[in-house]
Write a protein that binds this DNA or RNA. Structure first.
Lengths: 271, 271
DNA sequence: GGAATAGTGTCTTTTAGACATTATGTA
DNA sequence: TACATAATGTCTAAAAGACACTATTCC
């Protein structure tokens, strides 16, 4: 970090209090980290990349990286995702989660992380790691064990690509991921974002499975159908059908509504 | 910003992609800005400070300032509030809102702002500006006009302390404030935070007035009472009463419940 | 008594939960 | 036909909205 006192003072001092001291206002590095969530094989999953270099070499982490000097935060998040995993967010829903800034969260230096959540459709998409990283999806269930144990007490450098072991995540990414999952669970209640986990067109059963997977519960088919179809603009009928093992199901696309009012309440959600 | 390539590379490079270039990862200054909201004279109000120095000298702004090198973000937010206005957040509810990072949001240099929302009880509290700043509450209604007009097209350096004119806010603080107000409106629906705008003990009428003020609507007294009293842990009866112009009202304190499920839905909230 | 505010009761409408039942395809 | 899944119908219980009404204070 620069200690060029006069220069920093000229640019920063105007907003500083009377007891201004340049050494107290050292800038920080900024990263974006991104929890890309989707439904894979009937389970809620997140995309992780394996770190090649220290710190946390060999650990799995949320994709992300440093924000460039003249780059918007949202732009940085999607750019880093594309660079590390080859994934383009297209028109998917991307929203800021929150910012993590504990002074010791990165052992190298002070690093702030602006975290994002992405709702990716369930379509099986190839994931290409870059030269430096491998990338794969992990079921949330297979990671939550390590959340409660903390992120620093397990060396996982021998993990194979298909290992069943639950890896510890780099940095505070287990906390970020837990917050992201809770955000998604809450958002399904009062928004129509569940549909953004599906490729179009989709059936009402598929939409119900999204809720059942994310909330880890069972929903009554009739009541769910009544609720979704009575919510104006949640889904739009295409008129066509899809053939399955049983009776063909009607196909729908996403409607224009974003909010869901009154909400679809998650069972067992007592105050 | 330092251009000491080797040193920066050694500390930052481990997380960077293969095409790493130190000049692309320049650090940024970090501020916290804080929207302290309360009910003043029956209106939703926010605490602003008048800027003494450039940029935006004479403009009103959210209290806030630079985060210190080894300081937690939450700590920085409450420290800056105390320094600029003499207000201690005590046990009030403080929550992170979101982070604002548009590259040109500060004309001096790249500055990220991590914004917070505070729910302050309505108690008339003295607000002391520091040596560099004046501080006062503004009704949200008196500021929203300037939100839609943008924050840069009005010089307000002549504004007196009791001016009725609607000032333009410094930086992108009008956007931050708009997001904060919307956050509060939403939170009253599915949390018990409305009670944190009141001093204890309070009456159910006072609690209803909080909702009516924040949502700008009228609520039926009987239905509101039924809803609040049936929500377990929202309020706790003290057994005592308070005398007003009419029949004495029963007094309550805040209960232990944080979530409100099912929610108290805001009228005219159609999807 | 009258004004003002607090608190209760009740009727109706809406919505949600818990099913039973019918429909329509494939093996 | 058996089976699997989609779609509909119905009964009940709970909650919300719209009131009318009663209660208790101060003047």
């Amino acid at each position: 970090m620069s200690r060029d006192g006069t220069k920093v003072d000229a640019r920063v001092g105007a907003n500083a209090p009377a007891d201004y001291d340049p050494s107290k206002y050292a800038p920080s590095a900024i990263t974006t980290d991104l929890a890309l969530l989707t439904i894979r094989n009937g389970r809620l999953a997140v995309l992780l990349v394996e770190r090649a270099a220290a710190p946390f070499a060999g650990y799995w982490a949320l994709p992300g990286g440093f924000v460039r000097p003249d780059e918007d935060l949202d732009t940085a998040a999607t750019r880093e995702l594309a660079e590390e995993t080859g994934i383009d967010v297209h028109d998917w829903h991307v929203e800021q989660l929150r910012t993590y800034g504990a002074p010791e969260r990165d052992p190298r230096m002070r690093v702030l992380s602006v975290a994002y959540v992405v709702f990716m459709p369930t379509d099986a998409r190839p994931v290409a790691g870059s030269a430096a990283t491998r990338a794969r999806f992990w079921a949330i269930d297979d990671l939550t064990a390590s959340v409660s144990e903390g992120a620093l007490d397990d060396a996982v450098s021998e993990l194979s690509d298909h290992a069943k072991a639950t890896p510890s995540l780099a940095f505070d990414h287990a906390c970020i991921l837990a917050d992201a999952v809770e955000r998604v669970r809450a958002k399904l209640e009062y928004t129509t974002l569940a549909a953004s986990f599906l490729d179009e067109p989709f059936t009402l059963s598929e939409l119900r499975h999204v809720y059942e997977t994310v909330w880890d519960c069972r929903l009554d088919t009739g009541n769910f159908r009544r609720k979704v179809l009575s919510a104006d603009g949640f889904v739009v009928s295409t008129g066509s059908q899809c053939s399955t093992a049983g009776r063909p199901a009607a196909l729908y696309t996403r409607g224009a509504a974003r909010a869901l009012s009154p909400p679809l309440v998650r069972p067992g959600n007592e105050s």
